[in-house]
Design a protein around this nucleic acid. Sequence first.
DNA 1: GATATTAAAGAGTCTTGAAGTCTATTATTG
DNA 2: CAATAATAGACTTCAAGACTCTTTAATATC
Lengths: 132, 132
Amino acid sequence: MKYSKATNYALHTMLHLALSNSNKPIGVQILAQQQKVSPTYLSKILTKLVKEGMVASASGANGGYSLTKGWESISFLDIIYTIEGKSSLFDCDFDHGSHCPIQKVMLRSEEKMEEELRKQTIADLILDRTTT
Amino acid sequence: MKYSKATNYALHTMLHLALSNSNKPIGVQILAQQQKVSPTYLSKILTKLVKEGMVASASGANGGYSLTKGWESISFLDIIYTIEGKSSLFDCDFDHGSHCPIQKVMLRSEEKMEEELRKQTIADLILDRTTT
DNA sequence: GATATTAAAGAGTCTTGAAGTCTATTATTG
DNA sequence: CAATAATAGACTTCAAGACTCTTTAATATC
Ligand code: SF4
Ligand code: SF4
């Protein structure tokens, strides 16, 4: 049970995009270089973020990726959901009704984590960086 | 990113052992039957719990598995750690020091989940069941 | 409009780990 | 000793993660 590397790449890319506060898009080569990952693979990951509207992409010369309006409110959970999917961490094949005590515990604990990830935005990291 | 099925089996087995409050050990065949999993495979999982001292095993006729003294304080997290291991959900290959903001967020959120799983014991489920 | 640039899409590869089987071996009871 | 039951280890199968390679589509600049 681990987060996929793709999640790691997505988070780092978002941070990087947020940090370079130019409104010019950044090419995937540059983004990929920093994380030592292949451009085509990172591109595939970023496309997911594009489809969710978190990132804008521009083809052609001087194209690349950039954050969309309202990016300041994008949370860690948003990004994680986009990459990992939204299904629960704990799944049992059966459905023994809503009384199932095990599932109740597992889902509640999971919810605690997500609650925290929902609070934290990429923008928060920038503030941290400038204040320290 | 999912819990393994082994974790599911381990939790259910612990609950089952706790529920059958006889002090006689229960054979793996019976435990496996309920969860529709092969006895040998479940046995492999239970051996992990045995090694952690949560469960006692008895070979030979009338043998099987039973909870050990102090089982009432075994938490969900204890069981999960035993099966899934204790390493963090988020791992990056690099180590950019303790200032890394991404890791900080990820670990804190994870800690929230574990906090909840640490509070919940198998024994709690029994109480729930008898009161409802 | 041609050409260079860049993202998107899709097929295909490689590796790893989960999930489980099979077959001994060891321990215990009676 | 014979039956029962856990333990151990080797082995197999399958699915998903983590990519690569190649082609196609969009766009800007000359
Ligand atoms: S008891 Fe709950 S967790 Fe277990 S199989 Fe039934 S529904 Fe699933
Ligand atoms: S910034 Fe943090 S999470 Fe990212 S690679 Fe460095 S140490 Fe890892």
